[in-house]
Design a protein around this nucleic acid. Structure first.
Lengths: 352, 352
DNA sequence: GTGAAAGCGCTAACAA
DNA sequence: TTGTTAGCGCTTTCAC
């Protein structure tokens, strides 16, 4: 009687989709579940040719798809990593993500992409969610605010890697750009072209990247004894960019050169420049962090400090997977510093 | 003896990370697993205040994180959907993805993003992988090639939704742009400005979107009895864009206006234009599909056909979640057609 | 109000 | 060479 009811249930395809299970395959092939499992995991050592074929046929006939949830539960690994970007709107983030995806895909890992929108709260949510989903590791472009959480992960030995931004006192693998040097280089380049009143604009400096760029800028300015005015440094939020720039240009000695902190600020600046007829580079020379596709298409083409985003992402994925699989060599230092590439174009005017 | 060994194992934190399980919480709180489970699922009806607090304390003390894999296995749902984009490099894809992410996030769903790179093979791999991961549904920007697979999913009643591209004879929810109309509109706009030799460039037309745009273009050209030359239509692969454009411009009667099929081709065209000093709009007027951030910053600003990508993505997520939760109303048609927004800027010259 | 027990679909000893 | 069995961590019915 019970068997009969069971049969009936099996027939009626509850909810329209009845998932085929390993048990079904085993029955159809006339073998046991574990044999099917062996087959799926390619442990063919002792498996008879006939068995193999029966199983293969059964799988195809039933259109069986393994349930990786169950497998992951058992094996305690998901072959999945998470990546949390601080702000997906930065082109840099997209490129990093893509590099990581590519690398993981070629190593049979999957990637769950999350966007923290620069909100520490959201970052925390995503870290928790990824852990709940049992991902094998996390790549983080940290907001830098969830120190306690980072520390907890570090302590637990959870595979974690920071990219783009370092976090003081958290001792995990970190991949960054030498932002300070890059900013200094830009200032020196301006200086070499005869500029003295050099300004910098970026978004608020609460993350290490921006802070370092600002530091590099300031250091270089000091080094060359250029005019250091508070008015030459803007860290206004994105939506106040226009106002900030106009204010700068209205100074009695407005800057002749401007270092732009990232691609999002750049867009705002270019909008402003157009709207108010500020002439580039005659009136204002420009160098910007982040290479965007239109840097070379803009009129004039923009000199940029390009980050090797793809390479950085790839390295990140590589290191994280090594860490997950406990294959870290001694040569794998804790921290990798990439160098920016300076792409000289016509947005800087020669003054001397 | 056995108990002793078990204890020892529990102490030694195998591999550095020992996950805290519900059992641990239950023990510490002096209740049973099922009570903890009730607590976590907020089934408080009959739960004593004291019990609640003991459990809460135990959870915090142990830093317990539920394992959603186990839960999903049991509940047969993962609260996760997958999205497979045909080509992540299109700005349009990024925007759609973001919209879907936003909507899902606010509905406690998670999203796994995959990039098929325009390769049907990869698309198939990802569909299989997502199903293996037991995602509750899939949003697909289909390559259009895996017909058999699409049909299988349709037959199984698997929650599936197409966006951007329709697939003939596959009867699932579909969200598209009215590409034909948009292309016709562009041609008519050119015509209204006095252009007669109107060309179009896009990447190869094996997907419905591009095909429709081309059809719209051709129809409008025919309608207004404009010169129809094969040479005015290029569907060269991306890497041959430069060559194709130059060839067009070298015709004895080169086009005076060009409709560009998508943002990736646009970039190539603008590079070529710069390299070979083709004057926009004097020598060649331009309208392009896809609004990019630099369209209005380019010199001259580019007239674009903007897709309401965010709205489309949001609608997609909305429909798919409805479908998953079996809440489709009668008003939810199978197919949603969005209208493009025509953004008039200076890249079209008036000839009359 | 709470707990015992069965089971989700799979893997991995170990037995046969 | 293949099958038996005991779980992975959680949910859920039903008994207490």
């Amino acid at each position: 009687m019970i068997a009969l009811i069971y049969l009936v249930c099996k027939q009626q395809e509850v909810g329209g989709i009845r998932k085929v299970t390993m048990q079904d395959v085993a029955e159809k092939a006339g073998v046991s579940k574990s044999t099917v499992s062996q087959y799926l995991n390619e442990r063919f050592e002792y498996m008879g040719q006939a068995t193999k074929e029966k199983i293969k046929a059964a799988i195809e006939e039933l259109g069986y798809q393994p349930n990786v949830l169950a497998r992951s539960l058992k094996q305690k690994k998901t072959l999945t990593i998470g990546i949390i970007v601080a702000n997906i709107l930065h082109h840099f983030s997209t490129q990093i993500t893509r590099a990581i995806e590519d690398y993981c895909h070629s190593h049979q890992y999957h990637v769950i992409i999350c966007n923290a929108d620069d909100q520490p709260e959201k970052e925390k949510q995503y870290i928790d969610m990824l852990r709940a989903k049992q991902v094998d590791g996390i790549i983080l472009l940290p907001t830098g605010k969830n120190i306690a959480l980072y520390r907890e992960l570090e302590k637990q030995g959870y595979p974690l890697l920071f990219i783009d931004r370092a976090v003081e006192e958290i001792n995990v693998h970190t991949i960054v750009l030498n932002n300070r040097d890059a900013a200094m280089h830009a200032v020196e380049y301006f200086y070499g072209k005869g500029h003295e009143r050099i300004a910098m604009m970026t978004t608020p400096v609460h993350v290490s990247v921006r802070a370092e760029r600002v530091r590099g800028y300031q250091e270089a300015v000091r080094l060359h004894q250029l005019p250091q005015m508070n008015e030459y440094l803007s860290t206004a939020p994105l939506e106040n960019t226009e106002q900030a720039l106009l204010q700068m240009m209205a100074l009695s000695h407005p800057p002749t050169a401007l270092l732009v902190g990232n691609d999002l600020v750049l867009i705002e600046i270019l909008k402003t420049v157009r709207k108010h007829d500020i002439r580039i580079p005659d009136q204002l020379s420009l160098i910007t962090f982040d290479e965007t596709q239109f840097a070379e298409l803009y009129d004039p083409p923009l000199t940029t400090i390009a980050q090797p985003a793809y390479a950085m992402g790839k390295k990140a994925a590589e290191l994280l997977l090594k860490q997950i699989n406990q294959q870290l060599d001694d040569e794998d230092q804790r921290s990798f510093v990439f160098q920016a590439e300076f792409l000289e174009r016509e947005s800087v005017k020669k003054l001397i």
